[in-house]
Nucleic acid binder design. Sequence first.
RNA 1: GGGGCGGUAGUUCAAUUGGUUAGAGCACCGGCCUGUCACGCCGGAAGUUGCGGGUUCGAGUCCCGUCCGCCCCGCCA
Length: 595
Amino acid sequence: MGTLRRSHACGAVSAADVGSEVVVAGWVQRRRDHGGVIFVDLRDHQGLVQVVFRPEESAESHERAGEFRSEYVILARGTVQRRTPDTVNPKMATGEIEVVAQEVRLLNRATPPPFPLEDNPGVDESTRMRYRIHDLRRSPLQRNLRIRHELYQVARRILCEQNFLEIETPMLTKSTPEGARDFLVPSRLQPGEFYALPQSPQLMKQLLMVAGLDRYFQIVRCFRDEDQRADRQLEFTQIDLEMSFVGVEDVLGVLEKLTAGVFEQVIGVEIRRPFLRISYADAMARFGSDSPDTRIQLELVDLSEAFRESDFRAFRSVIDAGGIVKCLPIHDAQELGRGAVDRLEKFVKKELGAKGLAWIRVAEDGSWQSPIVKFFSDAERATIEQRTAARPGSLLFFQADQAARANAVLSRLRTDLGRQLGRVDERPWDVLFVVDFPIFRRDDDGELTYVHQPFVAPIDEDIPLLATAPERVRGTHYDVVVNGVELGSGSLRNHRADVQRRILEIIGYSKQAAEARFGFLLNALDAGAPPHGGFAYGLDRWVMVLAGVDNLREVIAFPKTQRGQDLLMDAPTVVDQEQLDELQLRLAPPPKRGG
RNA sequence: GGGGCGGUAGUUCAAUUGGUUAGAGCACCGGCCUGUCACGCCGGAAGUUGCGGGUUCGAGUCCCGUCCGCCCCGCCA
């Protein structure tokens, strides 16, 4: 590089620099060699600029430029010139100008890129991940990481303004059987024992509140050893926060400030406050989901009551078994033909585990075409018609199943069909709180278990119900949902040890087990815990939403594949026997496979 | 753990019913070209058809197994 230093980022050279000398450095995006004149699109983190190499300007530079190849790293000194009108490139941000090179230095050669470094390379994801360096050179990923950076900065600033203290918590911590599967780290100093990587700093931040730190936040990596999805990675980042001496409203107030502040300062979007609030019960009833996108103008209708005494066995038996009958009415659905409905049925049965997909189509003459309607009484027909506002052109989809599955299936149809048919209102951003979650639910064995965490505080007036009717206890849990994506969740926590002990008991912990597992927490609560509550945003998901992408891998610099591998570094790998010996670990023989 | 889609040149794809030497675009290499911007023109090289086995005179194609990528269910909040 010598002593020459760049004066401008490639993307930052502008018409204002015409006539002046600049030094630009970057990667050769593309070389167009006309023999006599050579054009190089030079790329850096800010964009592209065209560098022109002319023999009459600098024979040596022109000669060198002939050797340039894609991704070569060069530095060029030259004069910014305005392009003649017929050579302006309107597709390029710097298309009105170009740098005419007087001097050029080759800083490094490069192997040919494994795939074209374009905005939409149309290349397989495994290739992108194996060559992540090249992938990251592309502007969409650079842009996403920039958004991510802005989110860190804005969140920090806003939380600092709100008197939150940034405090780190340990990565090597204690395994707990709750929640997700832990990542374990063997201890060398305590052979045979293991740390766990944190699934979240939940308990640590509660301890900080007990310790009197008042308001804590942390942008923190979390680990959950579960199967991955488009919106779930083994390791992910939370914006974690907790505050003392607060009720639900206080926390929601901070969340509104932070959420709206980020939207405004990161992507320049104003979000109206206060945010819409919807109860969990309402969300499930109307949308079949606890993270609804309310821009989609389709809603579900619960018809369980109408079929409670029905002669239609398929529905009646489900209700008798504690299930529900729900309907997704879509009006003016002529576009959805018989073939489409068949495909939908196949889809929900195969992918979502639905038993079937019953439907009614209202023909133009008002008649009902349906495989099931012949089983309905006149009263049932009338109820359906009235509750769903069915009219000629309507298509009604039914699910009779346990509530969770019926809602899951219809919710999926609601979002898929709503988008497909354009039943979406014009708001680009749909930000809401979902509140009033239940605190307990029945698991598959009929035992009471927690819905979110065992530390969620009940709402005050339901505390007496813990003794008598725990199922009816309402929790203080709340979620922030943006465009149908759950950005994060939080709650007030139990600051009274007796309430916490009772909840642990309800979800099946003996006194001894509770003390063994959570003794440090219970002791902390006993030590004078202030009322406290907080929240955790899934930062990666938030970036995903802000960037308008639908996959976490697009907002993480070095993501893992669905099977948890890092294809760039090739992790995980086997380790040396010495390392295992040191940890006193011995590998079990691989499990036998069939045959 | 289960379901679905996919894996052929660096890359994106094609290859009839199982049938000749597995083709094409881009990229790459060589040559030409003074206003291109997906530059253009001429030429060239490039393949363990993911891997292993089987059926067959013959397998990219059919069968079995296995590995890998993605999406979904379970799981996960």
